[in-house]
Amino acid sequence: MLVVEDEALVRMMLLSVLDDVGFKVMEAAHADEALHILAAVPDVRVVVTDVEMPRGSINGFELARRVRNDRQDIGVVIASEHVAPATSKLPEGAYFVEKPVRPERLLEFIRALLS
C-alpha cells in the first residue's frame, strides 16, 4: 500500500492506522515521488492519495488517473477536504473519501478494493 500525502502529520496518522491493522505501507510526500515508488515496487495494490499537494508536478486526481491507466490492478482512494467529485469523474477502481479521514471509512474502501 502507498500513502501519498504532503502534510506530514496527516501522513503519519494514515500510516499508523494502516499499519495497526496489518498493512505493509510505504509513503510519498507528493505524486512524483509516488510514481517513482510505483515504478520500482511492483506489488503495490492500493494507493491512498491526497488531492492538493503543492510539491510535485501533478495533483492527486491526475495521479489516480495515471495509476489506473498504467496499472488496473491497483485500486485508489482519493482524499480531499473539498466537495466530492461526481462518481463519473473518478477513474474506474477509485473511491473518494472526505477529509478529515475517518479511519473506519478509509478501511472500508481499502477492503473493498482488495476483495
Rank of each mutant, 00 (worst) to 15 (best):
M26R: 09
V41K: 13
V10I: 15
A34I: 12
L15P: 00
A28G: 07
V83E: 10
A29N: 09
V4L: 13
L114H: 03
V4F: 11
H82A: 08
A29S: 10
V77Q: 12
V46W: 09
D19S: 14
M1S: 04
M12P: 00
L14R: 01
S115E: 15
M53E: 01
V3R: 08
F109A: 07
R102A: 11
V41Q: 12
M26P: 03
R11L: 10
A112S: 06
A84I: 07
P103L: 05
R65L: 14
R11E: 02
M13I: 12
A40K: 15
R68N: 10
V48A: 06
I110E: 00
I78T: 05
A31Q: 10
F96T: 12
L2Q: 08
T49V: 10
D19W: 06
H36I: 02
V51N: 04
N69W: 08
V83W: 03
D20L: 11
I74Q: 05
G75V: 07
V21Y: 01
F23W: 11
G56D: 01
R11Y: 07
P85G: 05
A40L: 10
M1G: 05
P91I: 04
A112D: 03
G93Y: 07
P103Q: 12
R68G: 14
F23G: 12
E62H: 13
T49L: 02
E62G: 06
S88V: 10
I110F: 04
N59A: 06
H82S: 01
L106P: 08
L107N: 08
S16P: 05
S88N: 05
R55T: 15
F96V: 02
L113Y: 09
M1V: 02
